[in-house]
Structure formats: C-alpha cells, structure tokens
Nucleic acid binder design. Structure first.
Length: 260
DNA sequence: CCAGACGTTGTT
DNA sequence: GTCTGG
DNA sequence: CCAGACGTTGTT
DNA sequence: GTCTGG
C-alpha cells in the first residue's frame, strides 16, 4: 500500500509538471506562490500533503481548472460529524465506487498527490525492513510520480473546515510484489486532466486512467530503519543500504517448535 | 422503524 | 494488545 | 505506515 | 448521506 512517501522536488518543478492541467501554484492576486513546501523525506499520515485538485468554488476564470494546495492525509467524508477513530489513509481502487465512504469522492472529488517515491516495510526474519521505491533516472527524465487520490472537505463541529485526502491503492504489479502486495495507483501525465475532471469523467472511467506502465521505470532499494520514526525527516532516509547488514545482525528467531 | 457503521493494512 | 501522534 | 505510550499521587 | 442489522 502506501503509508509513507517523499516529495523532494522544487515547487517550481512540480508546478511545471502540472501546467498541463492549468495548475500554476499562484495565489489569487498572482503575486506569490500559493503553496510552499520544503523537501520532505518522510511524509506520514496525518501530516499536510501537497495535492492538485480542480477548483470548483472560486472565481469563474479558474472554475474547474487545477491548482496546488495542501491537505491533511487522512480522509474524512464530508457527511461525517466526527473524524473516524482511526485515520483512513488509503482507498481501495477495486471497491471505491461502491463504498459509502468513497463513492462521492471517487465520482466528483479526485485529486493527485505528487511524490518522489514511497516506502514499504517488509518483515524479514523478524526485522521490519523499509524499502524505497522511486523512479530510476536512467530510464526516465522526470523524477516525479503522481498518486491518484480522493479528496474531501470536512467541516468539524466547531465550523472549521479542513481538506482531507486518501491515496488510492491497487494490487502490486511486477517487481513491486517482491516487497509488498499493494501499491499506490499511479497516473501518467497524459491522464492528469481527465482524472481531475469530476464534471465530465465518471468514477468508473476515471479508474481506467490508472496505469501500471510506470512500474517498469521504478527502482527499489533498502533504506535505514530510521525512517520508521515519523517525527524525524532526514535526507539520508532515501539512501540505499546493504540489506545483509541490517538483516543478518539480528539473531534468527527461535524456530517454531511443533507441538506434536 | 431506529441505531450504528461507514476504512485499510497485515498476519514470521 | 491497542491506541495515539506524526 | 511505524513508534511509542499505556498510570497515579501530590507537588514549590 | 446511505446502508445494514435488529
């Protein structure tokens, strides 16, 4: 699945990638970047994430064009009176069309979450070893990935509003299966516009925009277990480490003794 | 009819 | 084991 | 997603 | 809001 990721690119570079959908990252008075975000090597659930979504309630000239903004990672449906007791960080693409929680958002409130890569943990001989998935720059000239997401504006009991998102997931394909059974849904740049168009593209058609071709251009490597602590964000979290060292150091767990 | 849920992930 | 915080 | 807490008392 | 269980 996708429960931790990175976004390392310059905001200008991200904005450039999303110019195809009209996202410009400028404020309403055109004087400043609308959103700034430092390089992030450990984006965790509950934190603010950068998203691209279509504007539906702004001035007419920007109606249904995309913009960049921040949203909280942890989906809260707009009809909920209270946030769910545990964070909803993912939405299964296989079932989102029929789930009460996601049905509205997959039809009308789709968004894109730009990412430089993501982490998955695999338990190897009792050690929870994180791996980092990112683009292999020898196979592509664009470092950014685009996760498919759903968005919801939640109004809390006190009247305050927050934008929330979940990242869509699907069964892992190709080499990703070696590490984990599920993966984030990826969108090619050509499909950004349709994915975001909740007016003209129905949910079932939007799901067909998810594309596995990008997996061929990914690389996977083991990284430090320090990344598990979401309170820490350091650039070395994405550095490749030798898997043997971390796994071999730990003693083999006691063999399971048969009771019979 | 009302009350209560509404989600995902993993499981050496 | 289970919940909370990030 | 993982890491870390998980409790009470009385207290200058 | 909408569905399920009782």
């Amino acid at each position: 699945m996708c429960g931790r990721f990175t976004l390392i690119a310059e905001m200008d570079y991200i904005a450039e990638l999303f110019e195809v959908v009209g996202a410009m990252n400028i404020s309403d008075d055109y004087s400043l970047p609308a959103v700034q975000m430092p390089a992030r090597f450990n984006i965790a659930p509950s934190q603010p994430v950068l998203i691209i979504k279509n504007q539906i309630d702004v001035v007419q000239k920007l109606k249904n064009t995309a913009n960049m903004q921040l949203a909280q990672w942890g989906f809260i449906a707009d009809w909920m009176k209270q946030p769910p007791r545990s964070l909803i960080i993912n939405a299964r693409s296989e079932t989102a069309l029929v789930k009460p929680m996601f049905r509205g958002a997959i039809e009308q409130n789709r968004c894109i979450i730009p990412a430089s890569g993501w982490y998955e943990w695999k338990t190897i001989r009792g050690v929870k070893q994180p791996f980092y998935m990112s683009r292999d720059m020898s196979k592509t000239n664009n470092s950014l990935l685009a996760f498919a997401g759903v968005h919801s504006r939640f109004m809390a009991a006190d009247g305050s509003e927050i934008d929330t998102i979940a990242i869509m997931t699907k069964p892992a394909v190709g080499m990703l299966k070696q590490v984990h059974g599920r993966m984030p849904c990826l969108l090619p740049q050509d499909n950004f516009k349709h994915w975001l168009d909740g007016w003209n593209v129905r949910g079932r058609n939007a799901l067909e925009l998810i594309d596995d071709a990008e997996v061929e251009n990914l690389k996977i490597h083991a990284v430090t277990r320090d990344v598990g602590n979401s309170r820490i964000d350091r650039d070395y979290f994405i550095d490749e480490i030798e898997l043997e060292e971390t796994v071999i150091k730990k003693p083999e767990p006691k063999a399971q003794l048969s009771l019979f």
